[in-house]
Write a protein that binds this DNA or RNA. Structure first.
Length: 347
RNA sequence: GGGGGAAUGUCCCGAGCGGCAAAGGGGGCGGACUGUAAAUCCGCUGGCGUACGCCUUCGCAGGUUCGAGUCCUGCUUCCCCCA
């Protein structure tokens, strides 16, 4: 956790100055990140358990002179100028601040510190971290005489070049409270054909032979592979039960057109309205749109179905008595086969 | 220290003779076509309101004007050139 490095910000992101975070916020973020990783890692005290540390623990105490003397001596400008991100910035006549230039020293120092404290020998990161990681490897070799390693992965994009992680409601959240398991399952189910094999290898633990069989499926049969991908990925994050429920909900929705309690559900206050609320209010309550104006637009454009009926009048009253039984909810759907949210009237 | 340039719809890029809710892309959402896919074509993409409508946006703060993204002044940040 970069509680220390966050104070200087991400050098590559020049458009937005990263705000200084208070210790309280950093603590909350740390807890949040820990929660996000919990399904995949076992945190604890055991020999193979995961630990999460905050680099503010050692970076904050570091004085400038001390920093220069302990770490600065091991870095030559000659080598740093040869780094790819430095070269490209200089060649492109783009400014490279001293702060950015120093960022990799701090990250290298982190690796060294982790190596000393925990015997950490491998640093993993996105491909843009290559220079930072290699600098840490060099530093550890010089200071400790130990050989350590780095692994980088390319930014994952879809076959059509789109960055991974964007979806209707924003990002693909790992937190089930931010993105319902059903929607997480759907995200994987809607993978592009060309990505299925790659994603199965990257995001599931299936045997390679099985993956090879799945990605060989052609035409509409590839959908079977997508279902497997969705099941596996959702199981890893939310567990087999949630994955099964999401798959079942999908069968009901896309197969029979029915609804189940496993679909995302949002409340709608009855308030002072005894009979019902306008279609705009109901759609807004679903969270499928971010404003009532957008709800009106989408209704008028014929994008919305309520209880399987195309609803084009933004002012039409939806009566409380129109809820679908036995769940007692309105089924709000964006697009003919698009996202579905159940809206439940509450007092 | 001196000179020049730039900041636009809070997703991004980017046009913008003083009348602008603001061109055009990309992205996103929807439709047609399909297989809950891709590609292609079409529509939508500031907020509030049932509605004539109202409100808020162009780095920040003032000013000129009936009226300012557009002109003037100061400030902030960034870039380039000279020293």
């Amino acid at each position: 956790m970069g509680g220390g490095t966050t104070r200087v910000g991400d050098p590559s992101d020049k458009t937005s100055q990263r705000p200084l975070l208070t210790d309280a916020v950093i603590g909350a973020n740390l807890a949040g990140i820990r929660r996000a990783f919990a399904p995949f890692l076992a945190f604890g005290e055991g020999p193979t358990d995961a630990v999460m540390v905050n680099n503010a623990d050692w970076l904050d105490r570091l004085g400038y002179i001390e920093f220069l003397r302990d770490y600065g001596v091991h870095f030559t400008i000659n080598r740093m100028l040869a780094l790819e991100f430095v070269k490209t910035r200089i060649e492109a006549q783009q400014p490279l601040t001293f702060l950015e230039f120093n960022y990799l020293l701090m990250q290298a120092a982190d690796f060294l510190e982790l190596n000393r404290r925990f015997g950490c020998t491998l640093q993993f990161g996105g491909s843009e971290q290559w220079g930072n990681i290699v600098s840490g490897i060099d530093l550890i070799r010089r200071v400790e005489g130990r050989e350590v390693f780095g692994v980088t992965a390319p930014l994952v994009t879809t076959a059509s070049g789109v960055k991974m992680g964007k979806t209707v409601a924003g990002a693909v959240w790992l937190d089930g409270a931010m993105l319902a398991p059903y929607d997480y399952w759907q995200f994987w189910r809607n993978t592009e054909d060309a990505d299925v094999g790659r994603f199965l290898r990257l995001f599931t633990d299936l045997p390679l032979a099985e993956i090879a069989r799945l990605e060989a499926l052609g035409g509409a049969e590839i959908n079977e592979a997508k279902t497997v991908l969705a099941n596996e990925a959702t199981t890893l994050l939310h567990g087999a039960e949630a994955a099964g429920a999401a798959a079942g909900a999908a069968r009901d929705v896309f197969g029979s057109g029915g609804i189940t309690k496993d679909l995302p559900t949002r409340p709608l206050k009855r308030g002072g309205w005894p009979q019902g609320r306008s279609s705009t209010e109901v759609v807004f309550a679903s969270g499928l749109v971010s404003s009532k104006a957008e709800a009106r637009r989408k209704l008028s454009a014929g994008e919305v179905r309520i209880n399987d009926e195309l609803m084009t009048d933004p002012t039409k009253t939806i009566y409380w008595s129109d809820v679908e039984q036995p769940l007692g909810v309105f089924k709000v759907q964006l697009g003919k086969r698009g996202r579905i949210v159940l809206v439940q009237p509450v007092d």
